[in-house]
């Protein structure tokens, strides 16, 4: 049964990889889904500790703006741009994290929110550095000096994003099964017991927070390059809330949930933009409410439950 499930994952990733061949016009959307998925993964990592962040757009925007600045250095390799952008976001998360990991519950949510709103206003107002509300152009960086056509770059970016997503998902999975990952999960309801084991809960959280910031930054950088442009809105609190929604839609239970949530979210938004231009948030609100109310474990919970039932049937 486990082998079947692993094979299925391979098939999902493989299938996703050939989608741009089948429908080249979807490449952009597919890349965005991966970028959002990384940000949702970042949020769901904090959810493992029972912490909701209403401010992860800060790191998402940090990654995108970093990519914009790095893009100005002509000849920068797109891979290097992605890595450095993600690192800058992680560094920002380290600095912010030193303060934020002292808080739990509502205060964690609100402090993240406050930080991201400070960043949002600065991005909006420091016109000379950030381009104000116009934002910045994220210039497409070629590979090691070779100029690439726009289609080539879009394809390259898609596969880089896919590779990044698979690597990130694998890494987070390994991390969650390590002692540090266990401690993270235990903080939610048994924080004192974690401390009894001689593990500093704050340090565990800080590590997760930095990792989470780096993941969100990577997503932001990918999205920034894919769109070719970044604006302050990417740091606004509703962007953060969108990531939370994706994580919850997918279900915090496993790393793939975040990507499934992001895909569903993006599909809903594209669908709604086409057919229900003015009531897309209404629809989204109803869906979130129904999931929180009736299926708190999200898409992943549904999928996992299906497998469990099948496994039980086999025995």
């Amino acid at each position: 049964m486990r082998a079947v499930r692993s094979l299925l994952w391979l098939a999902v990733v493989g299938g996703y990889a050939v989608l741009p061949w089948l429908a080249p016009s979807l490449t952009y959307q597919l890349t965005i889904v991966l970028a959002l998925g990384l940000a949702a993964l970042a949020v769901s990592l904090m959810l493992q500790a029972g912490l909701i962040s209403f401010g992860h757009a800060l790191f998402y925007a940090a990654g995108a703006y970093a990519a914009a600045y790095l893009g100005r250095l002509t000849g920068a390799h797109v891979v290097i741009t992605l890595l450095l952008s993600s690192l800058s976001a992680a560094l920002l998360a380290l600095i912010a994290g030193l303060l934020i990991v002292r808080y739990r519950g509502i205060f964690f949510a609100m402090l993240n929110l406050a930080l991201s709103m400070v960043a949002y206003t600065l991005l909006l107002k420091l016109y000379n550095v950030t381009g104000g509300s116009d934002g910045l152009v994220v210039s497409a960086t070629g590979v090691a000096g070779y100029a690439m056509g726009p289609t080539g770059l879009a394809d390259l970016l898609f596969y880089l994003a896919l590779a990044a997503a698979v690597l990130a998902a694998w890494f987070v999975r390994v991390y969650l099964r390590s002692p540090a990952g266990w401690a993270l999960g235990a903080i939610q309801d048994r924080e004192i017991r974690v401390e009894y084991l001689g593990v500093s809960a704050r340090r565990v959280l800080l590590v997760a927070y930095v990792l989470s910031g780096g993941l969100a930054g990577l997503g932001g950088a990918i999205a920034g390059i894919a769109v070719g442009h970044v604006a302050p809105d990417s740091a606004y609190w509703t962007t953060s809330a969108g990531f939370v929604v994706m994580a919850v839609l997918g279900g915090g239970g496993d790393v793939f949930g975040a990507f499934a949530g992001a895909a569903l979210y993006e599909m809903l938004s594209v669908f709604a933009a086409q057919y229900l231009s003015s009531s897309w948030e209404l629809l989204l609100g109803v869906i979130i409410f129904v999931i929180v109310r009736f299926a708190p474990s999200g898409l992943w919970g549904f999928y996992d439950g299906l497998w469990r039932r099948m496994a039980a049937g086999e025995r």
Binding site: A109, A241, V244, S279, E281, L284, G285, V286, F289, V292
Partner: peptide, 14 residues
């Protein structure tokens, strides 16, 4: 937090 956020989204569109 999530339920009130969902309500926020519904009321925004309303």
């Amino acid at each position: 937090l999530l339920a009130t956020y969902a309500i926020f989204l519904m009321l925004e569109d309303a």
